[in-house]
């Protein structure tokens, strides 16, 4: 199981446009990726490609989240997704 932590860099949190961008990128990965707030048990993690789950997560600017994935390409997938979370998409 590959695992990464990331800090939300978008000022509006993981909502709206940043959530769309992230969900779409997660869906494009060859492996299933989950997302959880830091400190929450892994079996309560949510589907990272689900925009509705992301919105329900309530991750604000500065919140730390944990991404997990398994299988071939898991490390690369997580690295890509961490980069997206740590970009401020509102600033674009």
């Amino acid at each position: 199981m590959a695992e990464r932590t990331a800090t939300i860099a978008s000022r509006v949190g993981l909502h709206a446009r940043p959530a769309s961008i992230f969900a779409e990128a997660a869906a494009e990965q060859p492996v299933e990726v989950t997302i959880a707030l830091e400190g929450e048990p892994a079996d309560e993690a949510l589907d990272a490609s689900s925009i509705l789950s992301l919105m329900g997560l309530g991750a604000e600017y500065g919140t730390t989240v944990v991404l997990r994935a398994e299988g071939d390409g898991a490390d690369e997938a997580l690295d890509t997704l961490v980069k997206i979370l740590e970009t401020d998409h509102d600033a674009e």
Binding site: A16, D47, S50, I51
Partner: peptide
Amino acid sequence: AAVLKATALMAGDRTL
């Protein structure tokens, strides 16, 4: 466009 894109993702949402 941003709003429509987000609603498109909601319609195809796997968790839902």
